[in-house]
């Protein structure tokens, strides 16, 4: 065994690869690039330059690196009136939990390259993704700041609205394939068609639910700065705020990967073959690219829409998107009954 092979076997050991390489490094890179893209795309729509002078040759790409580094070295202020333990741990746990769903999503059809191979991966991924908002609410509560508390309460409202939609609409895929296993789902898509074509209503509902869960426009309500400064994160400074800000994007990335696997055919054009390169690396790159495109769509909405009012968002979620998710679920069942998948 040569050194390269040893290294490869360490790097591509599934838990390390998916949690450390993809989960931390790629996610960080994606967050940095997507934030840069978001600012640049918004600037483009708004007929201006966006971040530029930090590195003119790279069109301002390191801007987010500068912001991150600045946050990292800035003073961390912990007000005397906060609940210290929760105040410090909540953003860290929220960040970890928001990237954890990646661990149970397969990037390839070979079960060996899957950190936690199991038949109920869809359920587990959804279950993990529902935990992190609780810590955002906690962060708001521990901050002992009125805006934080209002922001936390809004977050709680939004959770109740989107959670059911997200779960129902993603489970419609399971209903259609009669399986909770992501690999079966992707295989079914490779046999017939992607679920975005077979079940577009469920995809729309899932898309909106992800927007709501990661407070993207037009549902950027918990952090709506014109009433509740920075929402639950009003009191956070320095790297703790950086974590908080990154957590929403990391969560969006994790959700995008789930959506890419469940609706966009996962590694679809590619049939994973033998070896690490064809069996693991290339399929995972395909999945990440699909997730990245989804994230670009999410980011672009910022420049087109403003934000809904809280009650309007909740109303829309329960009156419009929830029936959509139900219909999507029904379509999934019908498809399974007709044997389309």
């Amino acid at each position: 065994m040569s050194l390269v092979e040893v290294l490869a076997s360490i790097v591509f050991y599934p838990p390390i690869y998916q949690l450390v390489i993809v989960g931390l490094i790629v996610t960080l890179g994606v967050v940095i690039i997507i934030l840069w893209f978001e600012r640049k795309a918004t600037a483009r729509v708004q007929r201006r330059l966006g971040p530029y002078h930090v590195a003119p040759k790279l069109a301002g790409m390191p801007q987010l690196l500068a912001d991150l580094l600045r946050y990292a070295f800035q003073e961390i202020i912990i007000p005397r009136t906060v609940d210290r333990g929760v105040f410090i741990t909540a953003p860290i746990i929220a960040t970890v939990l928001s990237i954890l769903p990646i661990a149970v999503v397969p990037f390839t059809s070979i079960p060996d390259y899957w950190p936690i191979p199991m038949d109920y991966s869809v359920l587990v991924a959804l279950a993990i993704s529902t935990v992190s908002p609780i810590f955002l609410v906690l962060a708001g509560w521990a901050s002992n700041n009125k805006f934080s508390i209002i922001g936390g309460v809004r977050e709680a409202f939004i959770i109740t609205a989107y959670e059911l939609i997200a779960i129902l609409s993603i489970l419609s895929v399971s209903a259609a394939t009669l399986s909770f296993n992501f690999i079966d789902i992707v295989n079914a898509q490779m046999n017939t068609a992607w679920f975005i074509i077979l079940n577009p209503i469920a995809f729309m509902a899932a898309f909106l639910a992800v927007l709501m869960s990661t407070s993207g426009f037009p549902f950027e309500i918990p952090e709506s700065e014109n009433e509740v400064v920075a929402g639950p994160f009003t009191e956070y400074s320095g790297i703790l705020y950086g974590l908080n800000m990154g957590a929403a994007y990391m969560k969006r990335f994790a959700f995008s990967i789930i959506l890419a696997v469940a609706f966009l055919g996962g590694w679809s054009p590619l049939t994973p073959g033998e070896g690490i390169l064809y069996g693991y690396l290339l399929p995972s790159i395909v999945v990440i690219i699909k997730a990245f495109i989804l994230m670009m769509v999410f980011s672009f909405l910022r420049s087109v829409y403003g934000r809904y009012r809280l009650d309007q968002a909740l109303q829309g979620a329960w009156r419009l998107v929830f029936p959509m998710a139900l219909i999507g679920f029904g379509i999934g069942i019908i498809e399974a009954y007709l044997g389309l998948t």
Binding site: T42, V45, Q46, R47, R48, F217, P218, E220, S224, N226, R302, S303, V304, Y305, G306, R307
Partner: peptide, 15 residues
């Protein structure tokens, strides 16, 4: 525009 979260409106109007 910026008060109801529509930053593009702010930028266009100011441009």
């Amino acid at each position: 525009g910026v008060f109801i979260g529509h930053s593009t409106m702010y930028m266009w109007a100011f441009a």
